[in-house]
């Protein structure tokens, strides 16, 4: 059995960061729209492939391709809401969940027809792909960038939610849509900005996910399980909950490797989630009686 090493905690933090970027987007959107959107995984895939198209196929610099991707996926996210989910907004959460599963089927097969089964890689600049030894831990520049990005995103999100009108409206709507509407908040506007933001984060998260490994048309369909689980455990609608949930998932996955076959990593992550839910049934930072 391998001995304890600090490296496992660092790797847990990195995994958690990759999950957290996408989790924040998903949880904000679920909090406002009041349903769990499985097709969010396909927005993640779209983000990865959009970055690939801009940076590899069309040879944009990577750091120009990423913001462009965020815009592209944000627009796609709003478009998805307008065409499919907004017309169904009076249905209950379960019908919307199954409908989002349908959207996920539709898009993932569309992506497969478009991009085939080839595994692609992003061209990452050397300063990101080089590995650095910090103490006893070896990590890459990409890893450091992702952790830094999560910290920056969290700070910006905090400022937005606390200081700006849209942010306050989002919080109010997530807490109590009825009350928010009475106080003159336009739910359509809040919904628009939320889907836009969620899309941008999906684009960014998909790009990070691709930078740590590879791209293939089902990548989003696969990662959505981990993202969704961390969001539910954190408390749906609460971005800080998504961070906490991602932390539980990431840490339990990487630390478990010391004790059992890494093939059981995902099973361990799920077991940790179940235990977290048994201790706090409403989610780590969730409100009672919501989703």
């Amino acid at each position: 059995m391998p001995e304890f090493e600090v490296a496992y905690i660092v790797f847990g933090l990195i995994s958690a960061s990759v999950i957290a970027v996408m989790g924040i987007g998903l949880t904000l959107q679920a909090g406002i729209s009041r349903f769990f959107n499985i097709s969010y995984g396909e927005l993640v895939t779209l983000g990865a492939f959009s970055t690939y198209t801009f940076s590899v196929t069309w040879a944009f610099p990577l750091f120009l391709a990423i913001p462009v991707t965020c815009v592209v996926v944000a627009v796609a996210s709003v478009g998805l809401n307008w065409t499919v989910f907004r017309p169904m907004r009076n249905s209950n959460a379960w019908v919307l969940l199954i409908a989002s599963l349908g959207v996920s089927f539709f898009l993932s097969n569309l992506f497969f027809a478009q991009w085939g089964s080839r595994v692609r890689r992003l061209d990452v600049p050397d300063f990101l792909s080089d590995s650095h030894k910090i103490g006893d831990v070896v990590i890459t520049g990409t890893d450091m960038m992702i952790v830094a990005a999560v910290i920056i995103i969290s700070m910006l999100l905090y400022l937005m939610l606390q200081r700006t009108g849209v942010g306050k409206a989002m919080r109010a709507t997530a807490d109590d849509p009825g009350l928010a509407a009475v106080t003159g908040i336009n739910p359509e506007k809040v919904s628009f900005y939320t889907w836009l933001l969620a899309g941008a984060l999906a684009g960014l998260g998909g790009t990070f996910f691709a930078m740590t490994g590879f791209l293939e048309p089902q990548m989003g369909t696969r990662i959505i399980l981990l993202i969704g689980a961390s969001v539910v455990v954190g408390g749906v609608g609460n971005p800080w909950g998504a961070l906490a949930g991602a932390f539980v998932v990431g840490m339990s996955m990487e630390l478990s490797v010391m004790f059992i076959n890494p093939g059981l990593k995902l099973a361990v992550a799920f077991a940790a989630l179940v235990i977290a839910l048994l201790i706090r049934p409403q989610g780590i930072l969730g409100q009672k009686g919501f989703l």
Partner: peptide
């Protein structure tokens, strides 16, 4: 999970996780 009184979505997640653990 029922004992802890989780919501329907969370019960869904717990059952999903249980099935995945069993399969793995």
């Amino acid at each position: 999970a029922l004992k802890a009184g989780v919501s329907a979505l969370r019960l869904g997640l717990v059952t999903f996780a249980g099935a995945e653990i069993l399969r793995t």
